[in-house]
Design a protein around this nucleic acid. Structure first.
Length: 212
DNA sequence: GCCAGGATGTTA
DNA sequence: AACATCCTGGCG
């Protein structure tokens, strides 16, 4: 299991347990699933993680390690928990966390967050959108939270103003990953099907284990 | 509500 | 050439 190093308190006084890099020293698929419901903190903005995807560095043709030497060297040269941020389609920053487990390495892509705190800066960065849609997509959430390429490689789990805190357990389902052309059949997209902040609905809510 | 198309830049 | 996306406008 993973350890919890520090804790803090939320606005209502509940103890918030901060995840350490050891959370990400496990299988990427497990990490992606267990992050649903956790709280992502980034420089004053907080969001509940409601949608993620797992990518495996071996035998997963959709993972950047499959076709980008730079991604393979990133895995080699960074510790679990490092931010992997890249520009996609020339205009959207996408935020991943590096995972390095004994039984497999890879990434967790953050696909959607439900805004909890820091709504004003989010609205300023994404004017004209309803609050629940401010971060309802992988490109939207980086824009709303003010994340760009300068975060790439960063040890954000150990940053005073950033990190991830454990949330309550929520119902989590899985489905096929979105927007890819290779390995479309792996059911490594995870989410809370009851959230209004998903990037897309889960067409057939599937709670079966992704590992069998 | 759905679908088509265009914006845009890094990687290889 | 491909790409882990988003937004708009045209339809009804």
């Amino acid at each position: 299991m993973f350890s919890i190093e520090w804790s803090t308190r939320s606005a209502n006084g509940d103890v918030m347990e901060r995840l350490t890099s050891s959370f990400f020293e496990r299988n990427p698929v497990i990490c992606a699933r267990e992050l649903i419901g956790a709280r992502f903190h980034w420089n004053g903005c907080v969001g509940k993680i409601v949608e993620t995807e797992a990518y495996l560095s071996v035998d997963d043709p959709a993972c950047h390690t499959w076709f980008r030497p730079s991604a393979r060297s990133f895995v080699e040269s960074h510790a679990a928990g490092a931010a992997y941020v890249y520009l996609n389609y020339g205009m959207h920053w996408l935020f991943n966390v590096l995972v390095k487990g004994d039984d497999g390495s890879g990434f967790v892509l953050f696909r959607a967050l439900e805004p909890l705190e820091g709504l004003e800066p989010m609205r300023e960065r994404r004017p004209g959108f309803a609050d629940h849609l401010l971060a309802a997509g992988p490109g939207k959430l980086t824009k709303a939270f003010g994340i760009d390429g300068s975060a790439h490689g960063g040890d954000f789990l150990n940053d005073r103003d950033c990190g991830i805190y454990r949330g309550e357990r929520v119902e989590t389902c899985c489905g096929e990953r979105i927007g890819i052309t290779r390995a479309v059949e792996f059911p490594w997209r995870f989410g809370d099907p009851s959230s209004a902040s998903l990037s897309r609905k889960f067409t057939v809510p599937n709670t079966a284990s992704p590992l069998t």
